[in-house]
């Protein structure tokens, strides 16, 4: 007697639930074990009170913000322009934006170190500020596939050609069109991309470690090899941040759908 598909679906779902939740429970339980013999939030206190944590987290947070601003400013006009004026270039641009998914990040950063060293034409790694800028550019490259896709999808839902022509016929210039017309209309898409970028940048390790910047990722690895319970607490915090980012994306998407339905 064969069981119904529904039965097997529940089995599969149950298996998935087990695999995905046990590590989360394990992580949380472990993070509470810092005091011998009882559960406590001691590991969290240690982590949050650590000035290194505060510094590295702040560094990565600021990095994420700059990456988002730079990424949005780079990607939005490009996606807009390609849709409006250069549709034949779309496959090329799309190919470029997908490259970071194919070329391993460690290879890209290796290239940076070779190309922008102190004896090169653009010695970005020569100063801390220069390295920070290079790191931000690297993060923008990592975020490129997600950011570009998000913005491009956002643009697809509005008829930008008509909108732009209407704005031009009313006498609007390109700056006005960009900031008053295009950005507000793809704001939700841009925000989704931004939160995803934030989630990527906050935990990133390879770029920061190899460019020697005091970011959150290398700090976590350092904790991992020197402490027992604090890393689990860090993992819980990182997980919460990821959840928050995804939750905000969902929230904005839903709000915008709601607004569109009302209008």
């Amino acid at each position: 007697m064969m069981k119904s598909p529904k039965f097997w679906s529940w089995i599969a779902f149950g298996g998935g639930l087990f695999y995905f939740f046990v590590p989360l429970i394990g992580m949380f339980e472990f993070s509470l074990r810092a005091k011998r013999g009882e559960y406590s939030f001691l590991a969290y206190q240690n982590v949050l009170g650590d000035p290194q944590f505060q510094q590295t987290f702040f560094f990565s947070f600021v990095m994420a913000m700059f990456t988002i601003v730079w990424g949005v400013l780079l990607v939005t006009p490009t996606a807009f322009w390609v849709r409006l004026k250069l549709p034949q270039l779309r496959p090329v641009i799309e190919f470029i934006t997908l490259l970071p998914l194919v070329i391993p990040p460690i290879v890209i950063v290796f290239g940076y170190i070779r190309m922008y060293n102190t004896s090169s034409f653009l010695p970005l790694t020569g100063s801390a500020m220069g390295t920070n800028i290079l790191l931000m550019f690297g993060y923008s490259v990592l975020a490129l596939p997600y950011l570009y896709r998000a913005v491009d999808t956002g643009l697809r839902t509005i008829d930008i050609v008509t909108l732009t022509e209407a704005a031009q016929s009313l006498g609007a210039g390109w700056i006005t069109i960009m900031f008053r017309l295009i950005l507000p209309n793809v704001l939700v898409a841009v925000l989704s991309g931004a939160f995803l970028t934030f989630a990527i940048v906050i935990g990133e390790y390879v770029f920061a470690a190899l460019l020697n910047r005091p970011a959150f990722g290398p700090y976590m690895v350092w904790m991992g090899s020197n402490k027992a319970y604090e890393p689990a607490a860090l993992a819980v915090i990182a997980f919460a941040i990821t959840w928050a980012c995804m939750g905000l994306i969902q929230l904005f998407t839903r709000l915008s759908k709601h607004e569109r339905a009302k209008a």
Binding site: V22, G26, F30, G203, Y205, M220, G224, A232
Partner: peptide, 12 residues
């Protein structure tokens, strides 16, 4: 990345 590794160390 890093947090995922911590989660698995804490579990397995």
């Amino acid at each position: 990345g890093v947090p995922l590794a911590f989660a698995f160390i804490a579990t397995l």
